[in-house]
């Protein structure tokens, strides 16, 4: 009796999990499917297209500079990530391993800045970008959103676990603090680097609001913005080609995710922070 009820319970659990998986994966399948269906079939419920066509992709490539936008996305997300990695690891190292006056106060202040919502900053940041003449430039896109306290938090946490002897030995060899950071601390902290990089990269890659404010020139738009404007355009936009552009937008991050799945998920459960 007990075994039967246990089996039943397992069945239910599997059913729930499979239903969940379908719920989460099917829409993506439906999206890719729509992008390769013929316009006549797009509204059909058929799960396998009778004919595969690339027309939607051709149409989309015709209308928006997809490659340029992808490059812009890489520069935007990559630039923010690079700056964040360098500057927050430096600050994180100082906060973790060096003694100096005001350290704890500074750290609390930095933690406090994590609570400032972007909505408070968006108007002044936009005005700053305009006044600096940074509209429609990579500088305007990247620099104002490269302040990221999460990196400091993670690096500080990680650097504290590195044995002091390693640092002392390097100092005796005459290494400066930056050399210690880049030659010893960072190579030992690959998981921290990957976590910070992933979380930082995803933000700008997926972001719509900030590019919407500071890039108004088609040639400078990251793909998330270009896709949005393409999709919202009244005339000529068709679901097939909209699904084609969203597919292209989703692919890089999904690939990244499949490779680094562990980091994505572990960092959520360990920090409880939102990327």
């Amino acid at each position: 009796m007990d075994r039967i009820s246990r089996g039943l319970k397992r069945m239910t659990m599997y059913l729930i999990l499979i239903a969940g998986a379908v719920l989460f994966i099917f829409p993506f399948y439906w999206m890719v499917l729509a992008s390769i269906k013929t316009p006549e079939e797009v509204f059909d419920l058929s799960l396998i297209p009778s004919k595969v066509t690339w027309d939607s992709y051709v149409y989309m490539f015709d209308r928006i500079p997809v490659w340029g936008s992808l490059l812009n996305s890489f520069i935007f997300a990559g630039g923010v990530t690079l700056i964040t990695l360098i500057f927050t690891s430096m600050a994180g190292y100082a906060l973790a391993r060096l003694e100096f006056r005001g350290r704890d106060v500074l750290f609390s202040v930095i933690l406090l800045t994590m609570m400032i919502p972007f909505q408070l900053l968006m108007i002044p940041l936009y005005i700053i970008v305009v006044k600096l003449g940074w509209m429609n430039t990579y500088a305007g896109l990247v620099l104002p959103v490269s302040v990221n306290a999460l990196g400091i938090f993670i690096f500080r946490q990680f650097f504290r676990t590195v044995p002091q002897e390693l640092i002392d030995a390097a100092r005796i060899d005459g290494a400066g603090e930056l050399k210690i950071l880049f030659r010893i601390m960072l190579p030992l902290s690959k998981p921290a680097c990957v976590t910070v990089a992933i979380f930082t990269f995803m933000g700008p890659w997926n972001d719509l609001l900030w590019p919407l404010l500071v890039t108004r020139d088609q040639e400078m738009m990251p793909l998330a913005q270009a896709a949005t404007l393409f999709g919202l355009e009244g005339q000529g936009g068709q679901w097939g080609s909209i699904m084609a552009v969203t597919t292209i937008l989703a692919v890089p991050v999904v690939v990244l995710y499949l490779f680094f799945q562990r980091y994505f998920i572990e960092s959520v459960s360990s920090t409880g922070m939102k990327g």
Partner: peptide
């Protein structure tokens, strides 16, 4: 976790 990493833009249009 898949939708978490995907852009809100993708998900909204989808």
């Amino acid at each position: 976790f898949l939708p978490v990493v995907t852009s809100g833009v993708v998900i909204s249009f989808l």
